[in-house]
Write a protein that binds this DNA or RNA. Structure first.
Lengths: 344, 344
DNA sequence: ACCAGCACTTAAAGCGCTTTAAACGAGCTT
DNA sequence: AAGCTCGTTTAAAGCGCTTTAAGTGCTGGT
């Protein structure tokens, strides 16, 4: 150790690391044998296997993905497009990682942001030669996704895409909202307002779920949908609007947890007791919603299961030759916390 | 369009896409020329250039990163390790993306989670042959990072790492907290409590900043530090503790915005007017803090500038041969919003 | 005419790995 | 002794690109 504090490598790829050939030379075998051993392909004798493994370890050999991808024409890479700002998607990524690892694939993440479009993110994934793409809540038109799906297996996670030949893994959003309404009605609520989440496919499903459930309980007349979007901001705004209108419902259901948190803050800030005077419910079971300071009743989307199913769908196409598209709809589950109670 | 909904590719890499050779054949040139044109290397004539570009476009040619990385021994990839759960890091990633793009590099993201250690995340990055690593708030011991830095240029973003030969880009955390204290004292506060953020390097710096600033104002006797951590949970807990103690200060400074939000909720929930009775300040200028429902006074870390500097540091090492390590310390800036006011 | 110099263009040798067909011995038959 | 099989190993041909030295055909100077 020279401790000069300035001995970091400067060149492109640093000192050349050991190659397959170096390992082979060390044990006096061909690179072919070493390759077979290292990939766990049956063939080499036990003795060879041990010697190779030892040599590789001694040399600190680590295969070069780039080279093996090129040679094998398999990258064993799944491309994941995310919105790096979404807490829920962050959670999905975590589960995708473990699921992919279990089946021997690696993930490459690409994010779309205000300054980076969805298609740029996808381009990047394609340039890495990902074998399949898992898109989290893609917003691109179905036709575009269908096109993409013709080049590479595509799994849409969270968003319904009909007739595009893609695989879809999602949870039954309408059912989720239905469960919320059932829960509230069960507590005795009737004046249940819904704060909408915009014009996306998911928002449509949830809104429909609200309508259907209200009608199912004979509350057609009580259906009341307020304009909102995906942010805390929207919840706050709608909350203030409700307060101003002087026509507070006994329960508010919002498109997602973020919106619910805005709503919560607006109402509490105005001295409204929750759940004493008004019950509030969100959707997503966001990390935020679990905090004791919010303690929000919400709906869990079973992130782990969705992730597992998405990876499974990819593997079925890649390794098991499935070619027909599949849609997997999971049942969401209500998580009752502290923001719901019988109406006063 | 056959619209059967089941025509997605099933094989490993889908139908083989056009190669350099195909483009070359189409214009009757060698692959060498095409490669030169496509990479914008000077040499080919204008006429050739045009024809190649057209042919490539017609064929929908997209270079194979894997192959070119292998051949050129340059991946032009920067590895970024993030904690996918952090909103602030998400923002950094966004800026890193644009900064990297400007200098012709691409990013590969790897995340560490509860189930995926920091070193696994780094291994992945290395396997992709990233030319430099940008680690967001790494927690590994300095010695480990120093070791890594011997293999590949490493930039620690946000965390101070002394004498390990790495580049560091961070903001002056002590100064940031100092600015907060100055602001509060300027408003007339004296009883200013600090809620700590644990035992990390960053927490240490901020705590020190608080102490120094208090002393600077002759408020040694008022120094009061409460145990906390990085979560909303902690803020909430400490807030309740303050309420119970019956000894409310006139201002509370917390380690980060998340903690501040917990604090805010706890105090408001107990009917304490903010900023009327107590002022609250966070740190990070988190997306959350900007919401009208929190409207938190906080300190901005200049995410964009930090990202730009980190990429610059990498490029200096990779393309400009710098070998001495560098530490870039940016000045944070106070963002005054609605949770601070003169004491009652 | 001849060659130097210039502007382009290209053949060919890899990059570090995978993969396939072929080679090799050793142990069996017949 | 020739022929077979079987288990193990390997030579060699790529994967799709980059890169370098060597080519080509010009022009213009002498």
């Amino acid at each position: 150790m020279d401790g000069t504090g300035s001995d970091a490598p400067t060149g492109a790829l640093g000192a050349s690391r050991p190659r397959l050939e170096d390992v082979a030379a060390r044990v006096g075998l061909s690179t072919a044998s070493v390759s077979l051993v290292l990939r766990g392909v049956p063939g080499p004798s036990e003795r060879t296997r041990q010697r190779v493994l030892k040599a590789a370890a001694d040399l600190g050999y680590r295969p070069d993905r780039t080279a093996s991808a090129l040679a094998s024409k398999r990258s064993r890479l799944l491309g994941v497009m995310i919105d790096v700002h979404s807490a829920f998607q962050a959670e999905l990524v975590e589960h995708l990682h473990t699921a992919a690892e279990e089946v021997g694939y690696d993930l490459v993440l690409s994010t779309h942001t205000r300054t980076r479009t969805e298609s740029t993110a996808i381009e990047t994934l394609l340039a890495f030669r990902c074998e399949a793409l898992i898109l989290l809540g893609p917003v691109a038109p179905a036709a575009v996704l269908a096109d993409l799906g013709r080049q590479v297996p595509v799994i849409s996670l969270g968003r319904r895409v009909s007739g595009a030949g893609l695989d879809v893994v999602r949870s039954a959003d309408d059912d989720g909202v239905g469960q919320i309404v059932d829960h509230l009605v069960g507590l005795g609520h009737r004046a249940i307002v819904y704060v909408d989440g915009g014009k996306g496919v998911i928002a449509t499903d949830r809104r429909r779920g609200y309508r259907a459930a209200m009608r199912g309980h004979g509350l057609d007349a009580q259906i009341r949908i307020l304009h909102g979007d995906l942010t805390e901001e929207a919840g706050d705004r709608v909350g203030k609007h409700l307060l101003d209108s002087g026509d507070l419902p006994t329960a508010v259901v919002t498109f997602n947890d973020r919106s619910a948190i805005g709503m919560l803050t607006a109402l509490r800030g105005a001295g409204v007791a929750i759940p004493g005077e008004v019950s509030v419910v969100g959707y997503d079971d966001d990390t935020l919603s679990r905090l004791t300071c919010f303690d929000l009743t919400t709906v869990s989307q079973e992130a782990e299961e969705q992730a597992r199913q998405a990876v499974l769908a990819a593997v079925e196409r890649l390794d098991r030759g499935r070619s027909a598209s599949r849609e997997i709809v999971l049942a969401p589950s209500l998580v009752v916390r502290g923001t719901t109670a019988p109406p006063r």
